[in-house]
């Protein structure tokens, strides 16, 4: 409706919502995947997949990780996958900054 267009640019709005979801929700999700890959234990399987929390709340039964804060689980394939995720994120951010510098 041309009446609405005078007040709201629906095309821009639509694009902001969609790209906003991809970047604003998608990139953090990708980051979460990166952490998850990083967290994979050396055995190659995702720790306690499907098992959920045990009675004491611990999610890992991995030997040698007393420090609960350590994100890196010891899996080198996981490390590679995580780096790919983080690289994509950095590239996206770099592109965002480029857009700022290049102007609207």
């Amino acid at each position: 409706m041309s009446g609405v267009d005078k007040w709201i640019n629906l095309t821009a709005l639509w694009q902001i919502v969609v790209v906003g979801l991809l970047a604003g929700a998608g990139l953090p999700a990708l980051f979460a995947f990166g952490l998850r890959f990083l967290n994979m234990p050396a055995g190659g399987r995702v720790a306690t997949a499907g098992a959920g929390a045990g009675p004491d709340g611990h999610h890992h039964a991995v030997a040698g990780h007393e420090n609960e804060e350590t994100v890196y689980g010891g899996n080198s394939m996981g490390l590679v996958a995580a780096c790919v995720c983080f690289a994509v994120i950095l590239a996206a951010i770099g592109y965002g900054i480029y857009l700022i510098v290049a102007g609207a």
Partner: peptide
């Protein structure tokens, strides 16, 4: 949306590690 996705994806990471990351 981002919050929901993050918590779902990272649910198997221990709280301390997740917070750290």
């Amino acid at each position: 949306t981002g919050t929901w996705l993050i918590y779902r994806i990272s649910r198997n990471i221990s709280d301390g590690a997740r917070r750290h990351g």
